[in-house]
Amino acid sequence: MNDIDHRKKPGAWTRLAHRLGQSTVLAAALWAGATAPAAAQADWPAKPIRFIVGFPPGSSPDVAARALAPGLIQALGQPVVVENRSGVTGMLAAEAVARAPNDGYTFLVTSGSSMSISIHTLPRVPINPEKDLMPVAAVARIELFLVSDARQSFRNFQELLAYAKAHPGKLTYGSPGTGSAPHVATEMLRAQSGINVVHAPYRGASPALQDLLGGTTQFLFDPGIALEHVRGGRLRLLAVGSTKRSPLFPDTPTVRELGLADFDAGTTHGIYAPAGTPTAIVNRMNAEINKLLAQPQVAQQFTAIGAEATPMSPAQFGALIQRDSARYGAIVRERGIKE
């Protein structure tokens, strides 16, 4: 006989106790695994939070991030570090956040045009925003203001259209660049009104504004940086490009009111997290941001740049971005806009 033959076989109760012991250890391990994420969420945040902004300092997404950071620091008890990572119309930052751990410590702050326009105009988009990112909170609806050089003969929106139709190809409009929100807004205007005007793309909103002031171009859709010149009389405000009037200029009608019923050039800046970020963390961040957006001193920082604070739930924000993406995608394809 070999050695095994000489061993005493365990009885039935011994074998049962052994199996129960294994089951208890397994159950404990499964319970620990199931409760670990919940415990991590309960402790959140336990370290600094990063806001990666897809645009440079001073841009409207950067203004939004820095307007919210102090209040979030106070509410969450952790530092909120704002990091600017501009490039490829916000896509460098979007990719960085999409690839970051989904533990609730990295968020993207970006423009509405990046998520609803650029994904249709760029030759290559490194991520799929609908799959790789989660909407957390809307921050501000950005209004575009149709402004013209005050030296032009047309003094209102109807006169602009009449002049453009009477002189096809004579008027030139500026934009911050091909595929930018002001460019797409003007192409939307062209499609709905039938005017023939020439596009002059610039490398940013500031040089486009300077050439409008200098008379090189005659009109443009402004994201809010030209308003001081409107107040100063060098530029003329013809219309507001969003669905409702701006509180800054309550007497100025919208393009819709002036006859183009389907016109809406608004986009919504917002905050996103990597896909798979725990829902409890997303909801907490959304709640804290919405509280801040309701505070007059925060909302006024957006109003100053021609924007409107827009508190809403993550689901509402996600649905809004999908609607914006669908309508902008249609005009981009129709007009053949490519960056």
Rank of each mutant, 00 (worst) to 15 (best):
D3E: 15
D5T: 10
K8A: 14
R15H: 00
L16S: 08
L16V: 12
Q22Y: 10
S23P: 00
V25G: 03
L26Y: 10
L26P: 02
W31I: 14
A38E: 14
A40H: 13
A42S: 13
D43Y: 08
D43M: 15
D43K: 15
F51R: 11
V53D: 10
F55G: 09
P57A: 15
S60L: 13
P70R: 13
G71L: 12
G71R: 11
G71C: 11
L72S: 06
Q74C: 00
Q78N: 00
Q78F: 00
P79M: 09
V82Q: 12
E83V: 14
N84C: 01
G87Q: 04
G90F: 03
M91W: 08
L92V: 14
A98S: 08
Y105T: 12
S111F: 08
S113A: 11
M115R: 11
S116A: 15
S116N: 04
I117W: 01
S118W: 03
L122Y: 01
R124S: 13
P126W: 02
P129S: 02
E130S: 09
D132I: 02
V136D: 07
A140D: 09
A140V: 13
R141D: 12
S148G: 09
F154L: 08
R155F: 01
N156K: 06
N156S: 08
E159R: 03
K165W: 07
G169V: 11
G174L: 06
G174K: 08
P176N: 02
T178C: 05
H183F: 01
A185Q: 03
R190M: 11
Q192A: 05
G194W: 01
N196F: 08
V197C: 01
A200C: 10
P201L: 09
R203Y: 14
S206W: 10
D211L: 02
L213Q: 10
T216K: 15
F221K: 02
D222G: 03
L227G: 04
L227V: 05
E228Y: 06
E228T: 14
H229F: 15
A239L: 05
T243W: 12
T243I: 12
R245N: 07
S246M: 03
T254N: 05
T254G: 04
L258D: 05
L260N: 05
G270V: 05
G276C: 03
P278T: 04
N283E: 15
R284N: 11
R284W: 08
K291D: 09
V298M: 02
Q301K: 11
E308L: 14
A309C: 11
A319R: 10
A319Y: 09
Q322L: 12
Q322K: 15
D324E: 15
R327D: 01
A330S: 07
V332W: 06
V332E: 03
E334K: 07
G336R: 07
I337N: 05
E339N: 15
